[in-house]
């Protein structure tokens, strides 16, 4: 994928900073620990919940997050974005810590609600001079890869010791959420 979208300097489309757009898009979701914790927690929780959540959450999350980013792009405000992002790490971490097993629709709604805040932040913080298309591709790809990392880590859930490890990881994510929530509220 990276090779497919690599810009060729001599033949590049003259439509703005394409390489910068892709790199900025790839970098943005991983540049903030609050985003990373929440994205990975989605994967961890999906792996903990098992089928079909492990499939449906990664399908639903990018779509809902893009809706949030769309709102940010067209200038629609969303109150408490930073609080929402911090709360997402706290709540999702707590779900993993307690091995919560709500119905699939509720789990998807919780994850989707927080995805709006993450997407909105990505949508409003994008660089002005970058290629919008390449930024979008990088941003969605990086987010998906973070979910993939969470799911891959969550596969330890099949072993008894892995279950404990997973809950500890959830606790750490929740602690991180507390830290960021304090920062957002102060």
């Amino acid at each position: 994928m990276a090779v497919c979208f690599a810009p060729f300097a001599a033949h590049a489309h003259v439509e703005g900073d394409m390489a910068g757009g892709l790199v900025a898009g790839l970098w943005h979701p991983v540049s903030g620990l609050d985003h990373v914790l929440a994205m990975v927690a989605v994967g961890l929780w999906g792996a903990q919940l098992g089928k079909p959540a492990v499939w449906s959450l990664p399908v639903a999350f990018p779509l809902v997050m893009a809706i949030g980013a769309f709102l940010g792009l067209v200038g629609m405000g969303l109150p408490g974005v930073e609080i929402g992002i911090a709360a997402s790490a706290l709540v999702l971490g707590a779900m993993v810590l307690t091995e919560a097993r709500p119905p699939l629709w509720l789990a998807t709604t919780i994850v989707g609600a927080f995805a709006i805040f993450h997407g909105h932040a990505h949508g409003t913080e994008l660089p002005e001079d970058a290629s919008g298309l390449l930024y979008s591709i990088g941003f969605v790809t990086a987010t998906g890869c973070l979910h993939g990392c969470g799911i891959a880590l969550g596969l330890v859930h099949r072993w008894p010791a892995g279950r404990v490890l997973l809950r500890v990881a959830g606790g750490l994510v929740a602690l991180g959420g507390c830290y960021f929530l304090r920062g957002a509220l102060v």
Partner: peptide, 19 residues
């Protein structure tokens, strides 16, 4: 999942064009 990524990118492209 690839489809959801494509739709998400399309949504972002549209937002980008409308801003």
């Amino acid at each position: 999942v690839a489809g959801s990524w494509i739709a998400a990118i399309g949504l972002l492209m549209t937002g980008w064009a409308l801003r």
